[in-house]
Design a protein around this nucleic acid. Structure first.
Lengths: 219, 219
DNA sequence: TTTATTTTTTAGATTTGTCTAAACATTAAT
DNA sequence: ATTAATGTTTAGACAAATCTAAAAAATAAA
């Protein structure tokens, strides 16, 4: 089955709102999508006739199994493109969302399969959100902040929670990006700061506050 | 200025038809875009009010300077994506057109700049058509078929005119793709067949007919 | 438990891009 | 030089996705 860009945007937004609350309301979706409640009601009817959601007038709605499956495939496309934009094209993490929002609607299944392979089947996007696989399964990799990682273990940077320009600059300065392999040499109990080693570069010290914002996982 | 997907498709198609004949007709454009002549007339009015073309009722139309500039930027996006799909994602050349057709409408200027850089500023797409640069300039690189290239010169494969599955298979078998560096060892005057050497692989012989379909350029 | 407020839905209009059928221009043929 | 054939445009309709304004339902408050 094929969907319009508008339909896909609604499906994806319902999916996201469902992560916070079981049932979604007309107003919250209208707010999420930046449209009017009346428009939401119209689209809900359409999605209902396409059998993507359970919907009772005045009582809210939610995606059914099929709707969920489609939502996951859209989320998959979005996150793969975000990963591509950051790791291959060199975009900053805070700049990729809007572009991925457009790319995600390109519908070729083969394109996404090949993109996935080209990126080497990443498991999380640059914000650390898991990327669903072809079947919609997400492996939520266990992320730990550098502040909590044991010393002398090789780990890989998977996400950064603070995406301020200052943070981005600091990370760039230390050659740290998504996928960078690092090791914690030692942790100073004095102030919680950490000495880390980035492959090929000299060891450096980052404050506890910075360490708390950088999340890593094991290989 | 911003354009809808439909407007962009019309602009691009007019551009292509103009390559063959100065002035474009309603019917030819309707045929190109797979729509009805009446729809074309409607869109022409719209593009005229946006000052993208010269249009006289019943007498045909053509893009003006601004329309041309916009067409070139769309062509640029299309060809860069085609190049990406083939060289990075491993698509066959005959499969990329429709996907590029969708990708070309993603509007971020920064995206295209960074994609261009990532691809190392290619000058031609996988079909050998030149890629306009940021300013719309195209450097038409001098292409020669292998049948005409002098022996012992290092050349780079830039396009293949015959895109049948058989041809693709043959090329794959000999490890020849866009960007592949090859050298003509010798040419057999008997039947015009050519012995070529692909870097890292054993020399092989291709028929004159095949050689005529493979185009190369100097570095 | 009425009344007031908020939320959701309906009804009807608008825009974009398309369509069909009919009218109008242009070109070709007799 | 008329007539025929072809090509183009207009007029009016339609579907998708949106909107505003008003009606209806649900919830909160007095």
């Amino acid at each position: 089955m094929n969907f319009t860009i508008s339909e896909e945007n609604y499906i994806k937004s319902i999916y996201h709102l469902q992560q916070q609350s079981e049932v979604v309301t007309t107003n919250s979706l209208a707010n999420e999508i930046q449209t009017r409640p009346a428009s939401v009601t119209d689209m809900l009817k359409k999605l209902q006739t396409k059998k993507l959601l359970e919907y009772e007038k005045y009582k809210g709605f939610r995606l059914n199994a099929l709707g969920n499956k489609i939502a996951l495939s859209i989320v998959r496309r979005h996150r793969l493109w975000e990963y591509f934009l950051v790791t291959k094209l060199g975009f900053e993490w805070d700049r990729v969302h809007d572009i991925a929002e457009e790319l995600e609607h390109v519908s070729s299944i083969e394109l996404i399969q090949k993109l996935d392979a080209f990126l080497n089947y990443p498991q999380a996007d640059p914000h650390g959100d898991p990327i669903p696989d072809v079947n919609g399964k997400m492996t939520v990799i266990k992320q730990v902040s550098i502040a909590d990682v044991p010393v002398k273990e090789n780990v890989i940077v998977s996400s950064v929670s603070n995406q301020s320009p200052e943070m981005l600059e600091l990370l760039k300065h230390y050659h740290i990006g998504i996928g960078t392999e690092i090791k914690v040499n030692m942790r100073l109990s004095f102030d919680g700061s950490v000495e880390i080693k980035v492959l090929k570069y000299a060891a450096c010290i980052i404050s506890e506050q910075v360490a708390k914002n950088i999340f890593v996982h094991h290989d």
